[in-house]
């Protein structure tokens, strides 16, 4: 039975130019393997398609039980020039937490 990612993980969003970073961590380290299996770059891109126009790259950091997603938001997604309400993309981190995952 799928559950929202928020049940298993927490996430922080950051921004660097037109890139958004999404750092995903399990509440319980034992669930890291579930995150590695369920939270793929492709699923993140699909889930956030309305906000993330470009490529999504995933880095695995087993030393921290962390997944780091680097998302291209599009060439005109700078903090000052974007027409989004949240120009930084800070809300993307919590938007990702509604992703259904199979524990």
């Amino acid at each position: 039975m799928p559950v929202p990612l928020r049940e298993l993980a927490h996430c922080r969003a950051g921004d660097k130019g037109n890139l958004a970073t999404l750092s995903v961590f399990p509440h319980d380290d034992a669930d890291f393997a579930v995150l590695v299996r369920e939270v793929t770059a492709r699923r993140v891109r699909e889930h956030l398609a309305a906000w993330v126009g470009g490529e999504v790259v995933r880095h695995e950091l087993p030393n921290l039980c962390a997944l780091q997603f680097v998302c291209e938001r599009g060439a005109d997604a700078g903090v000052t020039t974007s027409l989004e309400l949240d120009t930084h993309g800070k809300t993307l981190g919590t938007l990702l937490l509604s992703l259904p995952v199979d524990p």
Binding site: H10, R12, G14, S23, L61, C65
Partner: peptide
């Protein structure tokens, strides 16, 4: 550990 971990990767586009 949770707050430090979140900040450790904040805005990091290449962890290596």
């Amino acid at each position: 550990r949770a707050t430090v971990r979140e900040q450790l990767l904040y805005e990091i586009t290449d962890p290596g």
